[in-house]
Amino acid sequence: MSKVIVKKEQCKQCGYCVKHCPKQAISFSADFNSSGFKYAVVDDSKCIACGMCYTTCPDGVFEIRKPD
């Protein structure tokens, strides 16, 4: 299970998460969500669940989880 849940329909492609991710784990999708934005995609292999994406996101796209 991934450490970050991405609500892709809420993403507005502002790019704050992409810029502030310390592991460069976030990129934009190739396709569009229903609002017409390329949405954030998290590379689980690079993600350390630090939550920077959550912190910088204005639109509540991210939910961070950690293994129990």
Partner: peptide, 24 residues
């Protein structure tokens, strides 16, 4: 998996602002 960061429940629906707006 435990949730460690999650949008507060009182924000029940997405905010309606422009991309990159600080309001959200």
């Amino acid at each position: 998996m435990a949730v460690v960061k999650k949008v507060p429940e009182k924000i029940a629906r997405q905010v309606p602002f422009c991309p990159g707006c600080g309001h959200g």
